[in-house]
Nucleic acid binder design. Structure first.
Length: 359
DNA sequence: AAAACGGGGAA
DNA sequence: TTCCCAGTTTT
């Protein structure tokens, strides 16, 4: 069964010339990154998960620390989930960390600790989708397999003048078909990484450096001066923000009240300071609402406005208020009082880490 | 097919 | 302050 759409797009395209230029450029110009020091499939895996939706510069320190703390699949499989989340603290998209540990446990129990080297087993692991599967197969095992991320879609949409809307889920399949036809069988690792590296260093979203591009002579968009018009991408709607009152509650012993978030959804299993949804609760009724929910009486104190304006791009608009406990017969299982010296053991989202600094 | 899922950095 | 970025899971 042939891929007719890919063959149609690639008609008249110098595949070998493009491939050779790209691979040669990558081998000359690639950045030396911590996960490029060897081909350890586990390290490739960890790096690819961290790099999802996350910039290289952000990932580097996390990668060092994570591999240092969990050097092998066995170490990660045996770790406490809270410990793994703590190592992921600040990186965002925390289900990546939880799914990675679930998948690594599967690798240890079903595959004797060896990361699978085939599409079927690899793709069945939690958190390993089509992109990560292809990245691991090609980079760790030198197996020709498409690894289509946003960089690849941008680069190929320009080179080949593909006008698919890359915001649509269906677009990825088109680019995978193209990569299957283009990919080097001799060095699929350098081909896939070269495509992504080109997108990161040269063929950037806003103002691509076409004059420095190693495959400029193969680029249909450059030829027509349309490189900045591609890729086509429909805009998504922005998430709405909700107002919350965040409570910094202390008891007589000077301990602070924190709670573990639910094990599903936003920031699952991370910790936070109790928050009152001001959309549902009037500010005058905060004490009553809190008594209802938590079983303890509090009295509100100073409002910490200097913390409030340090947040800018989080899901909720937070206003922080200090409070003290008047009696503590708590009936809220996920919350507990903790000495401030021990707060650093718990994984917090970045927004709440900022509050932590002011305690 | 579309929405949920964080946070950093550019505009 | 808002907008952009872009893999996998869930709905």
């Amino acid at each position: 069964m042939k891929n007719n759409q890919a063959l149609n797009i690639l008609e008249g395209f110098d595949k070998k010339g493009f491939r050779d230029n790209l691979i040669h450029w990558f081998q000359q110009e690639q950045r030396m990154l911590p996960w490029r020091k060897d081909q350890d499939p586990y390290k490739v895996w960890v790096s690819e998960i961290m790099l999802q939706q996350t910039k290289v510069d952000t990932v580097i320190p996390y990668f060092h620390h994570f591999i240092n703390q969990f050097p092998t699949p066995n170490d990660l499989a045996e770790a406490d989930e809270q410990q793994v989340l703590k190592a992921w603290e600040g990186l965002g998209y925390y289900s990546r960390a939880r799914n990675l540990q679930i998948a690594v446990k599967e690798v240890v129990s079903s595959y004797n600790g060896k990361v699978p080297d085939n599409e079927k087993e690899l793709g069945a692991l939690k958190g390993v989708g089509p992109y990560t599967r292809g990245a691991i197969l090609s980079i760790a095992y030198d197996i020709p397999s498409p690894a289509v991320d946003g960089n690849v879609m941008r680069v190929l949409s320009r080179i080949l003048m593909v006008e698919e809307d890359i915001a649509k889920p269906a677009a990825r399949k088109v680019f995978e078909g193209l990569v299957r036809e283009l990919i080097s069988k001799e060095d699929p690792s350098s081909f896939n990484q070269g495509l992504m590296e080109l997108g990161a260093l040269v063929c950037t979203p806003k103002s691509p450096s076409c004059l420095l591009c190693p495959v400029q002579s193969h680029c249909r968009a450059f030829e027509e001066g349309k490189e900045t018009l591609l890729p086509i991408k429909s805009s998504k709607k922005k998430q709405k923000r909700l107002p919350y009152l965040t409570l910094l509650i202390r008891n007589e012993a000077g301990q602070v009240l924190i709670q573990k978030r639910p094990d599903q959804g936003l920031l699952a299993n991370l910790w936070e300071f109790p928050m009152v949804p001001l959309q549902d609760v009037d500010k005058e009724n905060v004490q009553d609402w809190f008594k209802e929910q938590y079983g303890i009486n509090i009295s509100l104190g100073q409002s910490l406005d200097h913390i409030k304006h340090t947040f800018s791009h989080i899901i909720w608009d937070m206003e922080v208020v200090e409070a003290v406990v008047q009696n503590d017969e708590m009936n809220y299982a996920r919350a507990q009082f903790v000495h401030k010296e021990n707060l650093s053991q718990y994984p917090f989202p970045v927004s709440h880490q900022k509050i932590l600094k002011h305690i």
